[in-house]
Amino acid sequence: MNLSYVSIRNITKSFGAQKVLDGINLDVRQGEIYGLLGPSGAGKTTLVKMLTNLEKQDSGDITFEGINLPSSKVIHKIGYMSQSDALYQELTAGENLDFFAALFGIPAAKRVIRIHEVAKVVNLQDHLKKSIQNYSGGMRRRLSLAASLLHEPDLLILDEPTVGIDPVLRQQIWTQFNILKNQGKTIIVTTHVMDEAEKCDRVGLLRDGKIIAEGSPEEIIKEAGVSRLEDAFLVLGGK
């Protein structure tokens, strides 16, 4: 297993006078689910956007499969689900997926198959003919997730994927994450929900632009000398 599949070294980023990321170091292993845990405004989104061409660090290096990021060279291997649902309101769910699949150069015949497969993952296979305008918030979120899976990316980056999704479906989606993981995919997921972070193989605690702790949820709880990840976050953040 590649222990440094995604390597992030000394990343800093400022927007104007505000320092958003301040010397971030972390490694994501191939085939794991890595959770970036932190309160809103901690810099999670800014960090993951650097992996998807949407943001560029002021200093420091990010490498993925030996390629410096951000880069267009490996973009087809990365799937990104942003915080906003980013769907075309006027189109049907199927038309949305067909367009996103075409962007990644998936041939028409294969698109039909892939659309069906990813729709099944998020349990929307019976709602593909509906317009997005008639979708609920949770359905939009799930479709957005499905869209990021279309081109079978090796690295999946999910920014707050289960916001607005009910507990039953959240459970289903996490089951899917584990299936993808068992297929050898690597998943980076940002969240501010503690129980979700506990499902990750390893988490990085991000606070005020710094990683304050990293490891498996059990390791972090042990290190902090508390019984819950939530308490660990408060204890370690207080240091």
């Binding site: 061409n53 949407l54 973009i75 087809h76 906003s84 769907l87 996103f100 962007l103």
Partner: peptide
């Protein structure tokens, strides 16, 4: 504003 431009940017387009 809807975020779909981000999708285009994150694609090989």
């Amino acid at each position: 504003t809807g975020g779909t431009l981000e999708r285009l940017i994150c694609s090989p387009m």
